[in-house]
Amino acid sequence: MSRPFRFGVVAPLLTDVPTWRNFVGRIADSGYSTLLMPDVPQWQPAPAPALAVAAAQTGLRVGTWVYASPLRPAWSTAWEAHSMTVLTEGRFEMGIGTGRPGIEDELRQLGMPVASPGERLTQVRQTLATLRNLDGPDVHTPVVMAVRGPKARALALEAADTVTIAALASDSRAAVAAMATDLLAERDIELALHVPVVGDTVAPFMASARETDPTALREADSLAVLPKDPAAAAEEIHRRREEIGYSYFVIGAGSAELLAPVVAELSGH
C-alpha cells in the first residue's frame, strides 16, 4: 500500500526575523508537516537554533535539509540532533548527507580539511552510530539520508527512516526513478523528493545552483520541477507516488504558499 502524503518546506532565514516567523506561522496553518533548514554557514543562522525557534512557535515537525557531514565532528552533529529531539519532544528529523555539490570550495573557504567522498560517508556513518548511542533504547531520532552512490544507498538501507536521492537537475526522470525504486525493492522505506522548482520559481537556496533553468527542466520531464497550476501539480504528485513511490515532497519556501491548496488536499491521504 502507498504511504500517505506529507509535505515539507525548506525555509532558510533570508529576511528579518519577524518576517520569517510570520512565514513559519503561515506554513504551520497550511497543512505542511515539516519546516526544514539547509546547512550553509554563509547564508543564515545555524540550523538547530532556527529550528528550535520554529518548533517553539508552532506544532510543526522540524528538520535539517540536510546536515553536511564534513562541516562538524560526527559527535557534535549527533549530540545536536539528539538534543533537538529531546527539546522538541520528538518533533525533530535529522537530515544528513555528504554535502551538496561544491562543498569542497566551502570547506576551503572555512579553513577546514577537504575530505574525500568516502571519508565524508564515513563521517555520516559515525554520526548515525553516535546518534543511536545517545538516543538509547527509549528515544528515536528519525534520520533522513540524502544519497546518490551505491555505498550511500546501502548505508541508508541500514540506518535511515527516510531517503532522498541527491539528484542533479540534469538527471533524467528514469535515472532517479531507478535509484528510488531499487531502494524500495530492498526495504519499505519512506521516499522523499526535493522539488526546487515550481513553475518558474526556483527555491531561494537553489537560486545560484547550475542547471535549475525551469524551461529546460520541464522539457526534460525532470523530477526537480512541478507545474505551477495546483490541479496539475496534484496530478503529478499522485503520478510520482504511483509510478515511483514518493510520498514525502519537499518544496522551496518561494512556492510553499502557491502549493498550499494542494498540500491541504493531499496531506495524510
Rank of each mutant, 00 (worst) to 15 (best):
W43I: 13
A146N: 12
D161L: 03
S76W: 09
T212C: 12
S2G: 06
G149T: 11
A115R: 08
P70S: 10
P73L: 02
I27E: 03
T162C: 12
P204G: 12
L131F: 06
R218N: 04
R3G: 10
L157N: 07
P4M: 11
V202E: 00
L35V: 14
I103W: 01
E219A: 14
A48K: 02
A174H: 08
R218I: 03
Y32C: 03
V17S: 13
E190H: 11
V40R: 11
G99Y: 00
Y67N: 07
E235R: 14
A209R: 09
A156S: 11
A129N: 06
P214A: 11
L223T: 00
A231M: 09
F23K: 09
I251T: 05
T127G: 02
R210F: 10
W65K: 06
R3D: 08
N133I: 07
A156N: 05
S255D: 02
A55K: 00
R72M: 08
R153A: 14
A166M: 09
P261A: 05
G25C: 12
I96R: 01
D39W: 03
W65C: 15
A260E: 02
T64E: 03
A174W: 03
A185G: 15
S33V: 06
E158N: 09
P117F: 04
W79M: 15
W43E: 07
A260S: 12
G118A: 15
G99R: 00
L193I: 01
M112Q: 12
L157T: 07
A234R: 04
A169W: 01
Y67M: 08
A68R: 02
D221G: 09
M145N: 01
R187I: 04
L157P: 07
Y32T: 04
N133M: 13
A68S: 15
L183E: 03
E190L: 12
R72F: 05
A74Y: 01
L183Y: 06
A180S: 12
L258Q: 09
F205V: 12
A56C: 13
L128H: 05
E243F: 10
S222E: 00
I96S: 00
G199K: 03
D229K: 03
P38N: 07
F5A: 01
L110A: 12
I251D: 00
A52V: 10
I27D: 04
Q123P: 02
N22V: 11
A231Q: 10
P204E: 04
R210S: 14
P12H: 07
G199D: 04
V24E: 03
A169Q: 06
V86M: 14
E89D: 15
R6F: 05
V144L: 14
I189M: 04
V197K: 01
G111K: 04
E106S: 15
A46S: 14
A260T: 05
D213W: 10
